[in-house]
């Protein structure tokens, strides 16, 4: 069964462009502010949204997402808020997934978590610290609930392992553009296009590139070879640096518009 996300990638492929995927942590800057940010992203033209489950020990994240997670957790964001943000995104008409470290899923209940994703219109879950060797229960749960398990691969992932990891994946493959944590970078490493080329040899799934993309030029560059462009820290920065929430939301929409142009100019 095709998810909303599958439909998005089918459509962007038909339009010969990359999809623009935004990341925002649930409960950031506040529970209600997050929902406004989701609307601002949708207004700006993003195709899909990743709702982050803020976590106390985000070892894959750089200072910007760490700060957002800390702010969100400070007012008690929990699973219910993640699902309500997810619903807010899907209600707004975009495809949406959740991105979370593994422990909150295990704590919530593996089957229950997958079911709640589906119940709230979500298309899948990105699990950056779940290895395929530890995935049996999760793969069963996502299958049972018709959602996509989405894994992150890195430039250091060798070809034989790329094959194994992508075999476990559906929806899309998250290609980390570099060896490092999330955050804005001045340039996108050449490792990203090499990695995408290596994934193409082992998988037909759409490939989205994340880590470090923050502006129009980078989005255009990545859209030249990838099926999706993922932007997180740059959006969060809009909210962290704005004087008022309104300013921040406006900046989000403007950045999304700019990036949306970029993903249409790559080919």
């Amino acid at each position: 069964m095709a998810t909303t996300l599958d439909q998005v990638f089918a459509q962007t492929k038909a339009e010969n462009r990359a999809a623009l995927i935004a990341y925002i942590p649930a409960g950031f800057p506040t529970i209600e502010g997050c929902k406004k940010a989701i609307k601002a992203l949708v207004d700006g033209g993003v195709d899909a949204i990743e709702i982050g489950f803020p976590y106390s020990d985000p070892v894959m994240d750089g200072p910007i997402i760490q700060a957002a997670a800390e702010q969100s957790l400070a007012h008690g964001t929990g699973a219910a808020d993640v699902f309500s943000a997810l619903k807010c995104a899907t209600d707004a008409g975009v495809a949406a997934v959740v991105m979370t470290y593994w422990n909150p899923i295990e704590r919530y209940g593996v089957d229950e978590f997958a079911k709640s994703i589906a119940d709230n219109g979500g298309s899948g879950v990105i699990t950056p610290d779940l290895t395929i060797e530890e995935s049996d229960r999760w793969i069963a749960a996502t299958n049972n609930n018709g959602i996509s398990p989405i894994y992150v691969v890195a430039p250091s992932t060798n070809d034989s392992r790329l094959g194994k990891v992508t075999d476990h994946c559906s929806g899309f493959i998250y290609a980390a553009s570099l060896m490092g944590v999330t955050g804005t970078r001045t340039s996108i490493s050449s490792g990203a296009s090499d990695l995408v080329a290596r994934i193409r040899k082992v998988s037909e799934l759409p490939i989205a590139v994340g880590l470090g993309v923050s502006n129009h030029v980078q989005a255009r560059e990545v859209a030249g070879y990838a099926d999706g462009v993922i932007v997180g820290s740059a959006f969060i920065k809009c909210l962290l640096e704005a004087d008022t929430e309104e300013d921040g939301l406006r900046a989000i929409t403007e950045l999304a518009q700019d990036l949306a142009k970029g993903v249409r100019e790559g080919r």
């Binding site: 894994y151 992932t157 392992r161």
Partner: peptide, 21 residues
Amino acid sequence: ILGHFGQYGGRFVPEALIGAL
């Protein structure tokens, strides 16, 4: 196998670290 002690242990890390491990 894979460093399990009953249900405990294992590897829950970003794919980027698998090669090094």
